[in-house]
Amino acid sequence: MTDLLLDIQNLHKSFKISNGLFKKSSTLRAVIDVSLSLKQGETLGIVGESGCGKSTLAKTICRLYEADSGRIIFNGQDISRSQNKAMSHLRKNIQYVFQDPNESLNPRHSIHSILAEPLIIHGEKKSGIDTRIHSILDKVGLPKSALTKFPHEFSGGQKQRIGIARALMLNPKVLICDEPVSALDVSVQSQIINLLLELQRDLGLGIVFIAHDLAVVKHVSDRVAVMYLGKIVEQAAASEIYQTPQHPYTQHLIRSIPRPVIGSPSYSPLPGEVPSPLEIHQGCAFAERCHMATRECHQTVPALLTSDNDHKVACHHRLIAKQQWIPL
């Protein structure tokens, strides 16, 4: 436990949505009782459909949102409520890579400016800045000539490299990547993924990799967590998840991965849609759409329990699901 880089315990985050002046405001529960852990040099993939709360979780870990309750422990230190100096320390160690490279870079700043900013904020000496910038540029595979240019002069993939470079400037221990390749062309995606893996090897980073595409997550992660409507429904080693998923939702996700094999049966989608996160669910949130849902499922929330090999599942019928699974 002590060599855990990041230990997230029972994190809760909800938003109050105002329904106008005269109605009571509704609560949107984005992150519900989430516990995760990350080791040094390890990649944790978080997977789920849009609206399941992945980004909120990522931002809450980074203190861009304030958690309602729960703890975030970095390297043994509880940073859930830290301010000022401790906050500065946090920022240096946990960095964020954004999804949309077009939006996350200030269009009026030169690349030099963008990369120098983290160092300037944290009071680095001017002489050290340029050296560091050059070395990071090298690492992400960008030429020195990029420094005098502006974001709109680069392609999507290059911009994401800049985003990654910026995140690396402060020498963080943890990189939280929020769908870092979702906005990129397919051909560029693998380049960026490989870059991240390379950096991880070089610098011993812990990476939290958030995506909605299982195929991508599989390639990158050591461990995978599956989220549905704010909750973690399954968590296991990457290989385990793909070979023996034990939660009906996970199974559905894996079956949905398009396969270019001729003659393979096309898969029919799940009935219904992802319900609104504003609705309050009694019982399992997935019960509405689950083919093996029983009355128990509708009445009681299943807890996230370890089944074997550090494989956690939140389903009343996980054993049945495990048995029913036909590997592809």
Partner: peptide, 16 residues
């Protein structure tokens, strides 16, 4: 816009 969130995540102060 996201570059403002990015600046936040870097630890920039409100003034900056």
């Amino acid at each position: 816009r996201e570059y403002v969130t990015a600046a936040h995540s870097l630890g920039a102060s409100h003034l900056r």
